[in-house]
Design a protein around this nucleic acid. Structure first.
Lengths: 217, 217
DNA sequence: TGCAAAAGTTAAGCATACTTAAATATTTTC
DNA sequence: GAAAATATTTAAGTATGCTTAACTTTTGCA
């Protein structure tokens, strides 16, 4: 499958699943850095090939076939990220950029060898889940921190990294895989109170919407 | 630079340097698995961009600019081969195929990190020389086999081919580019003991004077 | 509810990188 | 040295994946 097709399907998947946005021409055009007209063009072709469901002026959605391909690209991307992070000395941004290219030039065979080398990881260095060869994502009990009831959790995913929020996370040791305890809420109900490395921290609602946690049973 | 351009320039370089063949339309077409007409097409464009020197009906040759790009692709290919061979469990053919794709999608930065990780190797697993970032090839450390100390070498030149010696070479897989390991000498000091494709071989002094080898670092 | 703005599509065009078939140049061979 | 064989180029056409500009549909809000 061509690079354009792979990126198109991946773009649809990510808009819907990672950003909760609609997969329409504008959003896709912005995400893929191409014109809206090019989106329409591709959409017609890929609907023809049954990768997507598309009707003029309507939002695009993936067929099973399309979702499988999108997840295959995401699998390759995340395994490359994990591999490069573990083996080579590159910054997270560099790793992402390289994976963005390598993901399209990696055979099923090579990616399975990388998977094996890494010991079949379930999450990449960002805490993002790695689909298995059939496109299945690891099952987990993920929720936004803002929705978490009192209990013990691991930080699983951090989104929307503005520099200020990134700094806040860094200074407070809110990192992927960090174990936290969610405390009962304030009487006001605003924010989330967590315990992290034996210190208590109050997290604003806005920030608590950027953090996914996974319940520990 | 596009994949097609990179492969075109690499093809010219390899025809001339690795196969001693002319870089004409037919040979290039065969090598790149495209039509001769497509070769003419590309040749006109790449001459325009000063990657090659080309006149109608004449053989193609690389400019300095073109040779530099070809060597850059070869560098990426051979470093990927070395990397995959060292880190992952793949067959030589698989490694070659993967490198053939990865070589076009690897930034200067990534390849330099791979180079660093590998300890700046001078030769890939086939014994082929790896160009440095400026396109320079490692200086060959040629010597007669009879003078070689224990270590790994490639066979570089074979002289004085009487029919008997030629047959001996053929039956024992002593071929140009073949990688051999020179073992410590017998107590007698007569002959050279080498390991070749996992079997040990004793080579008489007379024959060891016909073989030039290149030390692998 | 109507109308302007926003979103989306269509149309025309372009670059890349190929193809096949026909025409032409070069090389070989007698 | 000319005909035959081979090699190469030209011409015309195709698919992909874009672009911009013009036009159409949807939407959002006064």
């Amino acid at each position: 499958m061509s690079v354009s097709t792979e990126n198109f399907l991946k773009g649809i998947y990510q808009l819907k699943n990672d950003y909760g946005e609609k997969a329409n021409s504008s959003n896709l055009a912005k995400r893929l850095y191409i014109s809206r007209a090019a989106i329409t063009d591709m959409a017609r072709k890929l609907a023809e090939k049954e990768f997507i469901i598309y009707e003029k002026y309507r939002e695009i959605s993936l067929t099973d076939k399309g979702r499988k391909l999108a997840l295959s690209v995401i699998r390759r991307h995340r395994l490359w990220e994990t591999f490069l992070a573990r083996v080579l000395n590159l910054t997270p941004y560099e790793i992402h950029q390289e994976a963005e290219m390598l993901e399209h030039q990696t055979s099923e065979n090579l990616i399975s060898k990388i998977d094996e080398f890494l010991g079949y990881p379930q999450f990449d260095p960002h805490g993002d889940p790695i689909p298995d060869p059939t496109g299945r994502l690891p099952k987990l009990n993920l929720m936004l921190l803002i929705h978490a009831k009192p209990g013990r959790y691991t930080v699983s995913r951090i989104q929307n990294l503005s520099p200020e929020i990134a700094l806040f996370f860094k200074t407070n040791h809110i990192l992927i895989k960090q174990i936290i305890t969610v405390k009962p809420p304030n009487p006001t109900g605003k924010g989330v109170i967590i315990e992290i490395e034996n210190s208590t921290l109050h997290i604003d609602d806005e920030i608590a919407k950027c953090i996914y946690v996974n319940e520990l049973t």
